[in-house]
Write a protein that binds this DNA or RNA. Structure first.
Lengths: 153, 153
DNA sequence: CGTGAAACTACAGAGTC
DNA sequence: GACTCTGTAGTTTCACG
């Protein structure tokens, strides 16, 4: 596991926050030249520490302001139904996050839509058509307090 | 609002999934040259549609495997307490997401830690030291079904 | 939106300690 | 094994048409 050192960690911390930083800029912060930084990043990508690089969009500007947390409980808990549910969730593109949970609630979903009506339609025509859903409890986000893709490392 | 066209949307869709795509590659997909793509991206950054570019890390490899959803209800709901809570959450670096909700539960938090013990310590020494917290309900993620920073646009 | 040129970066050696 | 240095290919950036 720990085949990364402090320099690698620093690189990861930087790229988590700003992937546009050049190897040169990172090198200066670490008192190194660009080459070792370049090679370390290559290695971190190859080993899978860095999965990908993405652009983060402003959800209000792209008209996906309404964020909803939806808690789902299944009627029956056999393997086949759970498997099927997970597959179907993958295909619902409004769903940004979905976690299989350990408590009474089976799944927690985070969904982004342009409006409350759009969420209503999503539930009516997409989510609730999945069989074996028992309880379905939606609550709306009033305010985004904090939201980052970066880990504290 | 809609001062972006289909070409801009396509650019956003691409960069949301892979920010390393070059202007040249995007241009080829759209049957254009690199210049207009470059200018459009610049504009999308300037107008705020694109907030930033980040590297996405593998949480297992960096030893942040345990994801917990924590639902918090406040004891008193006056403005000052809510404000204070929101500020303090900003400083808790284990907290990756925090939303102010519309239901019985006031806040939903997503927290990443190396282990269950680390989560326990987080609650004991950090989260629960915030005053005015009433109910605090933690459930653990068994499996990450889906998880993306991209919006369906 | 296209062309073309300048500046910079990424990338791939060769060599040092 | 990890670094520095150097050179080249490719990209970004930005004139101008």
């Amino acid at each position: 596991m720990e085949d990364i050192d402090e320099i690698d960690l620093t690189i990861l911390r930087i790229l988590q926050k700003d992937a546009k930083k050049t190897t040169k800029e990172i090198a200066q912060l670490l008192n190194l030249t660009a080459s070792p930084i370049y090679e370390r990043i290559r290695r971190l990508e190859k080993k899978g520490f860095i999965q990908k690089y993405v652009a983060i969009l402003d959800k209000k500007l792209i008209n996906r302001s309404v964020t909803t947390i939806c808690q789902v409980s299944m009627r029956y808990h056999n393997e086949a139904f759970i498997q099927k549910f997970e597959e179907q969730i993958q295909n619902l593109e409004e769903v940004q996050e979905c976690y299989h949970m350990a408590g009474q609630v089976d799944f927690i979903l985070k969904i982004n839509t342009p409006s409350l009506e759009a969420y209503h339609d999503f539930v009516k025509y997409k989510l609730s058509t999945i069989e074996n859903i028992g309880v379905l409890n939606s609550t709306f986000v009033l305010k985004d307090i904090k939201h980052t893709s970066a880990f504290y490392i």
